[in-house]
């Protein structure tokens, strides 16, 4: 295809992505190195019958004008990145000096908003992704073993947790897990503690969010594995059996190697999606116990005072996180492409 034709064909998508993805990234980076103007303070002398007093007051007009002239605020360099709300270098150094053990140091870190969000996001990503893959694989093998006639309805119901809006799906679970809901009551009976509330405890909240995560994304892994199982070479399986391979050896040496590329694909998609975990934290109102990077940005942006530079700094740090997470895949794709081209 000629360069010019190619250009016109991709033009609309390219412009959309340039204007609404690439430029906003630049804008986010610029915002993150600026902070809002401080209010202009003037000193006025009030002279009354009892002598003169000096008072400081905020000059509203001058503040407005300054903000209008330079809407970005004042240049602050990397200040926002190192403040208490983000990398908190001073606090981390202080915690490092006073803490005696790793556990204590970790405890200090989890009190800093950025590390709290980072900690949960990473834990969520690296616990939910493997569990999703395992559960999805088990469902796929089970569905593949039953008669063809019931597979349609099975797939239909399996798709539900994944297709339903994350905010809505997590709300549905949240209401059931409420102390007055059916799962909440069942748990209280099982444990024998009528005051048990999942919402009130940090470890239980983490577990609940992760259970939701696995529930939500297992169907995706299931569908991909199920499709993969349909294409396993039957001849290879039979010849392995003739060669004396038992069931386990057939799975281990024929089926699993066939499914390996699919696992890479599922892991890649799941890492990307789990890293942005956000909606369940809103639905479960779990922010007191667990926050994520996306939630931290949302929290800065919402409400009366929009803290744009703080949100921007967290956004940049999140994007760097995504890049690190994705880099092995990118390097691999690059090698594959070069091999194909060569």
């Amino acid at each position: 295809m000629k360069h010019k034709t190619f250009f016109w064909f991709v033009f609309p998508s390219a412009v959309a992505m340039l204007l609404f993805i690439a430029l906003p990234i630049v804008s986010v980076i610029i915002q993150s190195v600026h902070v809002a103007h401080e209010q202009v303070v003037v000193t006025v002398e009030n002279c009354g019958p009892f002598g003169c007093t000096e008072a400081t007051m905020i000059d509203q007009e001058a503040t407005e004008e300054l903000r209008r002239e330079k809407p970005l605020g004042q240049f602050a360099g990397l200040e926002t990145y190192f403040d208490r709300g983000h990398l908190a270098t001073t606090e981390v150094a202080a915690a490092w000096r006073v803490s005696e053990s790793w556990g204590e140091f970790g405890g200090y870190l989890m009190n800093l908003p950025f590390y709290k969000a980072m900690g949960f996001t990473l834990a969520y990503t690296f616990i939910v992704t493997p569990l999703t893959i395992i559960l999805g694989f088990m469902i796929a093998v089970a569905v593949n073993s039953v008669t063809r006639r019931v597979r349609g309805p099975l797939i239909f119901f399996s798709l539900l947790p994944m297709i339903v809006t994350p905010l809505v799906g997590s709300l549905i679970l949240y209401w059931m897990i409420d102390a007055r809901g059916i799962i909440g009551t069942a748990l209280q009976m099982l444990v024998g503690d009528p005051t048990l509330s999942v919402k009130a405890s940090t470890p239980l909240t983490w577990i609940m969010l992760m259970v939701y995560g696995v529930w939500h994304s297992a169907p995706f892994a299931f569908i991909v594995y199920y499709a993969g199982l349909q294409t396993v070479n039957q001849d290879t399986l039979e010849s392995a059996m003739i060669d004396g391979a038992n069931r386990w050896e057939r799975i281990r040496y024929v089926v699993l190697p066939h499914l390996m590329p699919l696992t890479t694909f599922i892991a890649l998609i799941q890492l990307m999606d789990n890293f942005r975990v956000f909606e369940p934290i809103v639905s479960f109102s779990a922010s007191a116990h667990a926050t994520s990077l996306s939630w931290a940005i949302y929290n800065d942006l919402g409400g009366e005072t929009r803290q744009l530079s703080s949100a921007a700094a967290t956004s940049v740090l999140t994007i760097i996180g995504v890049a690190i997470l994705l880099s092995p895949v990118l390097v691999r794709t690059w090698r594959d492409f070069n091999r194909k081209a060569a």
Partner: peptide, 30 residues
Amino acid sequence: STYRYTFWFLIIALIFRAMPPITLVSGYLP
């Protein structure tokens, strides 16, 4: 198209796909 820039185009799209959408919002708002 068989040129190398298609590869880069797709890779950039993949990176954009991986970014949480909310990270862009603070870029839109002002």
